[in-house]
């Protein structure tokens, strides 16, 4: 790190006094934004809990339609990508540019794999008519539950879909940071964007940590015919 970086930081905004102030302001801003994200997903979580309470049997049946192997694999993949992201931030903190680039690239690889598997699951749902709306067909043994199972599948698509949109946004952010890292823009003295991108990425992971048991595991121990 050059003397120049220490005394006239090029990355310091005109309205901040120190890089430290700037860094902590940015991190706080990200956390405030993530609080809004919790409540954005919150609307869907609420809808899920309301209908799960009212349509208990249908939700048990609905969660059986989803492939638990793919779901669990995806959960693991997302955890790996989170680890990669954490190591990427650590590489920036320890001034290791090559490792930073490598780990960011791996984060993206695992993130894309997650979306790939998700696409396979979506296709499966289309093929078995588990998508809500005109294509939906109920194949179970209790036709009176048809509407309610459709509600489960609607929530499944709404929640995983909103999550997938966030994955796409996260991937573009990581891609941008990867490009900038490759250009050598970040170092131990200035890595705020890497940290912020990391926070966003881990947040997406946290949402999935809750979605997985709600959508794939609910009532698994109950045998459902059909």
């Amino acid at each position: 790190m050059s003397e120049q970086t220490l005394h006239h930081p090029a990355n310091l905004g005109h309205h901040f006094d120190t890089l430290d102030q700037q860094h902590s302001a940015n991190v706080l801003g990200m956390w405030v934004f993530l609080a809004t994200e919790v409540l954005l997903f919150g609307g869907l979580f609420l809808a899920y809990f309301v209908y799960r309470t009212v349509y208990h049997d249908a939700f048990v049946e609905g969660s059986h339609h989803h492939n638990i192997v793919l779901g669990a694999t995806n959960t693991a993949i997302l955890i790996v990508s989170s680890l990669m992201m954490a190591l990427a931030v650590r590489s920036a903190q320890t001034n290791n540019r090559r490792a930073l680039v490598l780990f960011l690239a791996l984060t993206m690889v695992f993130g894309l794999s997650f979306l790939g598997i998700k696409a396979v699951e979506y296709k499966e749902a289309f093929d078995t008519h588990q998508v809500p709306g005109a294509l939906f067909q109920y194949e179970g043994e209790r036709p009176e539950l048809a509407r309610q199972v459709e509600m489960f599948s609607l929530l499944y698509f709404a929640m995983t879909g909103t999550h997938a949109i966030h994955m796409l946004i996260g991937l573009s952010i990581v891609g941008f940071i990867l490009y900038r890292s490759w250009r050598g823009k970040y170092n131990a003295a200035y890595y705020t964007p890497v940290e912020l991108g990391g926070l966003y990425w881990h947040f997406i992971d946290i949402i999935w940590v809750f979605l997985f048991p709600l959508l794939y595991l609910y009532g698994r121990h109950v045998a459902v015919g059909g």
């Binding site: 790190m1 970086t5 220490l6 005394h7 006239h8 930081p9 310091l12 006094d17 120190t18 890089l19 430290d20 860094h23 954490a86 650590r90 903190q93 320890t94 131990a188 003295a189 200035y190 890595y191 705020t192």
Partner: peptide, 13 residues
């Protein structure tokens, strides 16, 4: 005066 400390003093896990 900007006494810009490197962010290295943030805890590295």
């Amino acid at each position: 005066e900007h006494h810009a400390e490197p962010q290295g003093h943030h805890h590295v896990e």
